[in-house]
């Protein structure tokens, strides 16, 4: 490997740029490192490239022509561009903005969807075990244990989102990428997901995009502040909220813009 990487970090971004075909880069030369078992929040005003950066990490941009990603991203010390994209996406699970359980599958089937899609055969006992463990991890087990055969789409929005997190956790990813996972939810569901994120930190590493500053303050260890595609500031959340290094971070946090 031409780049030496520190394997203490689970995720390393090196000069990552993403462009949507012509014009300014949506993400411009972002470099950052994420330690295991931390929650990293990506903040910034709308259109600053937060989601674009997150989606670069599990190579979702490759589904679309016109989008080009440059630079390098290392997952556990290995460049994701030298791995099979299917493997990258299994290791870096993604939770989307809107809950999107698979509409034709039951709750049970949704949790196991990753195994089915990867053609990983499981015995009935293993399946039951994975389903229970994953649903317990997201605190959904007690609410749905009697209706595992029902369609996932019958659940409330907040429950659906927890189901989607369980679906991702079922595959034991190394990294959990969350793209504004609470922006479509009510305050109570949001609070439950936030508690969940703090619990999941013990076992997983989480990178979460949020436009909600107080959410970032509540749940994250480290924060990135992005503006117009650039990473303006990256450091411990507490420090960024009390003593921001950059004038633009300060302006954003105090509500002068964004």
């Amino acid at each position: 490997m031409e780049n030496t990487v520190n394997t203490d970090y689970i995720l390393e971004l090196k000069d990552v740029s993403v462009s949507y075909g012509g014009g300014r880069n949506a993400v411009d030369k972002v470099s950052a490192s994420v330690s295991p078992n931390t929650v990293t929040a990506i903040m910034g005003p709308s259109g600053c490239g937060k989601s674009t950066l997150l989606r670069a990490i599990n190579r979702l941009h490759e589904l679309y022509r016109d989008i080009t990603t440059t630079g390098d991203i290392f997952l556990k010390g290995q460049s994701i561009f030298r791995m099979n994209p299917m493997m990258v996406r299994r290791l870096a699970g993604m939770v989307f903005q809107r809950p999107n359980p698979f509409p034709t599958m039951s709750i049970y089937g949704n949790v196991l969807a990753g195994y089915r899609l990867n053609n990983i055969p499981l015995s009935k006992a293993e399946k039951d075990c994975v389903v229970e463990k994953s649903l317990r991890e997201v605190n959904l087990w007690d609410e749905v244990k009697d209706s595992l055969g029902k369609k996932g789409t019958f659940l409330s929005g907040g429950q659906q989102q927890r189901l989607c997190i369980a679906r991702t956790l079922a595959l034991r990813p190394e990294l959990l990428l969350m793209d504004e996972p609470t922006s479509a939810l009510d305050p109570i569901s949001t609070a439950r997901i936030e508690e969940l994120i703090l619990e999941l930190k013990k076992e997983y590493t989480i990178v979460i995009v949020t436009h909600n500053m107080s959410q970032a303050a509540r749940i994250s260890c480290n924060s990135m502040f992005m503006y117009l595609g650039e990473l303006i500031e990256f450091g411990p959340t507490k420090q960024m909220f009390t003593k921001p290094k950059d004038k633009r971070t300060e302006d954003y946090l105090t509500g002068s813009f964004g």
Partner: peptide, 29 residues
């Protein structure tokens, strides 16, 4: 179908074929 359905399937590490056959076609059935 919302594009997020396909992205969710691929994000779980599914191959293009399994996402089409196991998620998209059943959803559009």
């Amino acid at each position: 179908l919302p594009v997020s359905l396909k992205e969710a399937g691929l994000s779980l590490g599914g191959s293009y074929m399994s996402v089409v056959l196991r998620i998209l076609l059943p959803s559009a059935f």
